[in-house]
Write a protein that binds this DNA or RNA. Structure first.
Lengths: 195, 195, 195, 195
DNA sequence: AATGAATGAGCTTTCATTCAT
DNA sequence: CATGAATGAAAGCTCATTCAT
């Protein structure tokens, strides 16, 4: 029974991602999500507190998975260079393979309402910590000179984020993953990585 | 008479920036902007097509000024290093001194509706071209090795943008301008700048 | 088995009285009644046609008992004076001892929807007949002069009803039963009761 | 301009009385009131805070007028008997001539929600004070023996109220005003009125 | 040009009721 | 009999925009 519940939760989540990506959060009616998920309007409110709650949960669930994935792969890396490559590659690859999630992440989730921003920021923080951890580790190993990890993280995340937004909005068919190596080279230079 | 018109236009624009920064674009009622600007609701529609149009014009006007300013200062710079410093310094300083504009820029303008995004992107493009121009110039002068200017621009703009968002959302009183030098160092490394 | 059925019926009825008295008919959710009664939401619909039906049955059951009680006591009375006293005393005492029922009776049952009013009015009619019977009897015995029994009943019931509403809504701790004798004196005067 | 405003306010009020009397408060949609008043839905909210507010204002405005009328007529009366007659006559006549208001007053306004009850009770209090004033005056003049004015008021108001409810709900064409003299006789007896 | 009263489209959410188990 | 997850109809109110003055 609990698997049925979980299944319906995921179905609504997936429907919401498609709907948000297609129409935008504000445009999209709850009724559309319900239709896509194959449930009644009211059913959504058995699983989510509100329309905003769906948006928040989309991020928490999907980015949670993504961050867990990055974290897992990072633990297998021996060098800072490998770790940076993992971050760039996983970030770009994930977004490229989940375009709807990317659209929601890059556009719809940039909501200014504190009710939405706060829980989202909390989740992003995990990703920030991951990135800052890699830099910190690099410094401790002597692979990276002493630098401000917060600012380095802003550079890394900001760059990845901006590249993704560019890709999401561009009509050009250039792939996101083609940017992995050039971006990585920039990061290595910025961090003055010693091998 | 035209100056009166211009004056009222600017008053509404400034009122809108305050109102959007305070309440958020969707929360903020046109009526509030009118009150802040000291005009009637209907008057706003003599100067702007719609509420969305106000948001777009805020960006076009203020960022237009900002970009023109950066452009002007860039023309005085002799080296790529100086140009990068100008970009970072002007970006951080401007945002720090215009917090309401920063809030609107970093949060409220991230609207997914194409009607809003498109004209905004068009303006941002000028800034992108400016940044890419600096990189291109660096490559031509031999100060920067041959790299993908688009990706380098994504890194530079993304980093500045992310740092600004961090500052806007953070409750910490850390200044944005304290990040100028560290950020600049990262950029120089990334671009492998030769002096 | 039938006693089990009866027991559950009564449990739901009692739960509904508490719930209606506490939250008001429209505010109160069926789900709350179910919780108070310790049954599932759906179970209620095995015993009642609808939420409105519960309200109607509350009145029919509880006021039915009340009216039967008054009727029983009246049959023991020898004089019109005794009968009037019985009515006033029983009315005030019953309401005072069943505050939740009084709240539902005086406030929640004043529903304008004909679906609710009609069956309720039908039950109240029994009480009206009881009161008019006492007056008629008084006239026939010569204790009361010839008067319009309908209007006399409106006076008696209206007075008792208004006093009860006053008590239900008043925050003052004045008891309802303290009004028995004064009210009775008014009725005796109104009916020009001869002993 | 202010008369136009007042005119529209009254038009909405009258429309609401008709609509509430016809469909009941909960059944009646705001949209119906708007249509009857010949204004747009939104216009109603320029004059009233909410649907509930309309109900409250109906009572305050119309009963306010009624109470003021009774008060005016009472000041012309010389004896307690004349004052009682004025109350009964005005009450019955007013209701009879304003059936829709009577329906709203006797049925729709018996709302249990405190938000509605409280302001209504406050207005009714004026009427209660008027009635209690008449009794008190009677006692002071020696026309009425010392009795509890509150209970006497409960009797008088309760009787009038119940007679009105009876009339509103009865399909019988019996007039309310035909009850004036019999009801008055009961009141005189109840108060043991000396002339 | 300026006003601001009037418009009316638009949508999330609740909750009484049902019915498959 | 009992359950409780699922249903889906239903409506008050807001607020961007208009337009008569």
């Amino acid at each position: 029974m609990d698997m049925q519940r979980e299944g319906k939760f995921q179905r609504i989540l997936d429907a919401a991602i498609e709907a948000f990506a297609e129409s935008g959060f504000h445009q999209c009616q709850v009724n559309k999500i319900a239709r896509l998920a194959g449930v009644a309007d009211g059913t959504i409110y058995l699983y989510f507190k509100s329309k905003e709650d769906i948006l928040i949960r989309v991020f928490q669930e999907r980015m949670g998975e993504f961050i867990a994935g990055v974290s897992r792969e990072l633990s297998q890396c021996k060098t800072t260079k490998a770790r940076l490559r993992t971050i760039v590659r996983t970030h770009f690859t994930y977004m490229e393979q989940n375009r709807s999630i990317a659209i929601v992440t890059q556009l719809e989730l940039r909501q200014s309402e504190p009710r939405v921003r706060l829980p989202i920021n909390l989740t992003v923080l995990d990703y920030f910590n991951l990135i800052e951890g890699v830099i910190q580790q690099g410094i401790e190993c002597g692979e990276v000179p002493k630098i401000d990890t917060r600012i380095a993280r802003q550079m890394i995340f900001g760059s990845l984020d901006e590249a993704t937004t560019d890709w999401v909005m561009a009509r050009s068919p250039r792939t996101l993953s083609s940017g992995i190596e050039p971006m990585l080279a920039l990061f290595e230079g910025a961090l003055r990585l010693r091998e």
